[in-house]
């Protein structure tokens, strides 16, 4: 479904070159929910922008259903961290969800249907005529999710979407993502710096190294498919997994070689 092969991104800063991503390769099969987690500053957002077609990688490629991504592909939707800045403040909630659909050229009745369904799915059926800034942070991010859902993407990219909301809202939104994923069968790539969140949400967790970034480890989350905040987080396996991820991230921060990629990473 989504293939990232040998992705490398170097920023040219005049005399100084910054290698944000060295060499990333991973694959998402259709319908998977994969979390990407890494130490702060490891180029997660850069990676996501490359995948979304918003940045051109220095080398390597991104394939969506076998086709190389050169610009934002039509079958992809992105939910950004900065909910306050990714919704159009001059459009009402319903119009925000509707605008991409209009661009797609869908007939009006179908758009109406999609907007209503998507807003209902995120629990905001009655907020359609409000402006985004009249809503709380968590609700604004729900709108952004509704907009992505209504777009009917094959792949949904989420860039630390809950980093800026409070803990309780965050738990609700995590469950919402799981529920929507089950319901729609969409492929989700979820970027986060929160280890618990990654383990709680994902079927797999990709652990990244510090910058210049490579994939440090791929971890399958062998937790039951039905998850809930209370029991899953108390599960001994959950604790074991999160401890493992935490160890890897700590090691990455200190620059220790990963077990799988030992010997790699010399200048």
């Amino acid at each position: 479904m989504l293939d990232v092969r040998g992705l490398k991104k170097v920023y040219n800063g005049g005399a100084r070159q910054v290698e944000a991503i060295r060499d990333l390769t991973f694959t998402l099969s259709a319908g998977e929910l994969v979390c990407l987690v890494g130490p702060s500053g490891c180029g997660k957002t850069t990676l996501l922008k490359c995948v979304a077609g918003l940045l051109t990688p220095t080398s390597g490629e991104v394939l969506l259903q076998g086709r190389p991504v050169t610009g934002p592909p039509p079958g992809m939707a992105v939910v950004f961290q900065e909910y306050g800045r990714s919704l159009f403040p001059w459009l009402r909630v319903g119009e925000n969800v509707d605008l991409p659909l209009r661009q797609k050229g869908l007939p009006k009745a179908r758009r109406r249907e999609l907007v209503t369904e998507a807003l209902a799915a995120v629990g905001l059926a009655d907020a359609e005529s409000a402006y985004p800034w009249q809503l709380s942070g968590g609700m604004q991010q729900r709108v952004a999710i509704a907009r992505a859902v209504a777009f009917e993407p094959e792949v949904l990219l989420m860039d630390e979407p809950f980093a800026a909301v409070d803990a309780q809202t965050r738990a609700d939104l995590e469950d919402l993502v799981r529920a929507l994923w089950h319901k729609l069968g969409v492929t989700i790539l979820f970027v986060t710096h929160d280890i618990d969140e990654a383990v709680y949400l994902g079927q797999r967790v990709l652990i990244l190294s510090s910058s210049p970034t490579v994939v440090r480890e791929e971890l399958t989350v062998d937790l039951p498919d039905t998850r809930d905040q209370l029991h899953t987080r108390g599960h001994p396996r959950f604790t074991a997994l999160r401890t493992h991820v935490q160890e890897q991230i700590q090691a990455a921060k200190r620059g220790l070689p990963s077990p799988s990629a030992a010997g790699d990473g010399e200048e």
Binding site: R85, F88, P100, Q103
Partner: peptide, 27 residues
């Protein structure tokens, strides 16, 4: 114009006249 909004518009395929009308001029 906010960078995140520009990225949002791009990723949803909002370009050309629609970008000008719904994003740049409004912002």
């Amino acid at each position: 114009v906010d960078g995140v909004l520009l990225d949002t518009a791009r990723s949803y395929g909002i370009g050309g006249v629609a970008r000008l009308r719904h994003l740049v001029l409004r912002s």
